[in-house]
């Protein structure tokens, strides 16, 4: 189980840096959604299925949809 956890954590760190570095806000939202999905898998491996369920529904679903709705009302690229 340890090597899978390490791979997921490395993926999470890469995703977090990419979200902070990218200029395209829509790409940042999609990367953040992938981060949330991997975080949900990590919660499941850490034997916390309740938090994993909430993370998958709220983090990967509703947060992404609300961010995309806000981007559609404002501009897409960061100045």
């Amino acid at each position: 189980m340890g090597i899978v956890n390490v791979i997921i954590i490395v993926f999470l760190i890469v995703c977090a840096i990419a979200v902070a570095r990218t200029r395209d806000l829509l790409s940042a939202v999609i990367i953040f959604s992938a981060y949330s999905l991997m975080m949900s898998v990590l919660w499941l491996l850490l034997k916390s299925p309740d938090v994993a369920l909430t993370e998958a529904a709220v983090g990967a679903g509703i947060t992404t949809i609300l961010f995309v709705a806000v981007i559609s009302r404002t501009r897409r690229y960061e100045k």
């Binding site: 909430t54 529904a57 679903g61």
Partner: peptide
């Protein structure tokens, strides 16, 4: 299902409600 099994299995009111809200979205 998740709402009704909130006290015997993982999940609960918030998780199931978020799922139903996602279907409405």
């Amino acid at each position: 299902f998740i709402i009704l099994h909130g006290h015997v299995s993982p999940g609960g009111g918030f998780s199931g409600g978020a799922l139903i809200g996602t279907s409405l979205i």
